[in-house]
Amino acid sequence: MTSTWITTRAWLLMLPLLIVMVAIIGWPLVDTVRLSFTDAKLVGTEGSFVGLDNYVKILSGSNFQRTLITTFWFAVLSVSAEMVIGVLAALLLNQQFYGRSILRALMILPWALPTVVNATLWRLIYNPEYGALNAMLMQFGLIDAYRSWLGEPGTALASLIVADCWKNFPLVALIALAALQAVPRDITAASMVDGAGAWSRFRFVIMPYLAGPLMVALVLRTIEAFKVFDIIWVMTRGGPANSTRTLSILVYQEAFSFQRAGSGASLALIVTLLVTVLAVAYAALIRKSAGVS
């Protein structure tokens, strides 16, 4: 069998999938690029060519900048917290204790729940009239009166970050736990004999084994956090006073709430570009760290 035939056959076998991909990903992407240079509305008008107008308006508008900052904080804070809590949970679950297997299984639960369920659950916890958080804080004497955690611009984003963290730290913990189990027992024993305390052991001996897998978790979670939509949409719809509006919410509002398909498309492309830059930067980082070890 010639190699040309093997190559041809491979392409032939992939062809149906390629057709589907072009139809559901390729064509909409090309059409989005086209739309982004028009002032098309969602219904009614096809729109006319407006050049870079949409991009200029978006990039110079305060809406976009404010939303970008909100998204940035959401991503940085939630991912950082998830990494720290995830690694701590993994270290705990890597110890020998009674009931460890049950706890390991339970830990996955928040991550396994659909985001909408998780978001609804947290809305109940944060509820200003009968929420568990208010009740707990009152009973501990930390607040004087029930508060609307999701209704105040000062606390809404932080509340969302907590909910997002609770949902996603298990993924980090799972990856870290798998990495921890790959640390040879002899190496930790050697470091104990060498006199390394718990912190030194973690920093010098265990961390090098965790770094690679954690980098993967970091990449995945950062990209997801930048694209976050569902948890925010269910809990606050970007409010109050746009204090929890992230880029994906902005794209949705622009395209579907305000029905501006043209500028919605250009906004979507900007978000895509940002996420691509992040993905490429992290991929380079992963390659670098893999090369080092």
């Binding site: 024993a189 470091s191 010098f204 001996v205």
Partner: peptide, 9 residues
């Protein structure tokens, strides 16, 4: 140790 247990990094 049998496996040498050197710190790889």
């Amino acid at each position: 140790f049998q496996s040498y247990a050197l710190y790889p990094n």
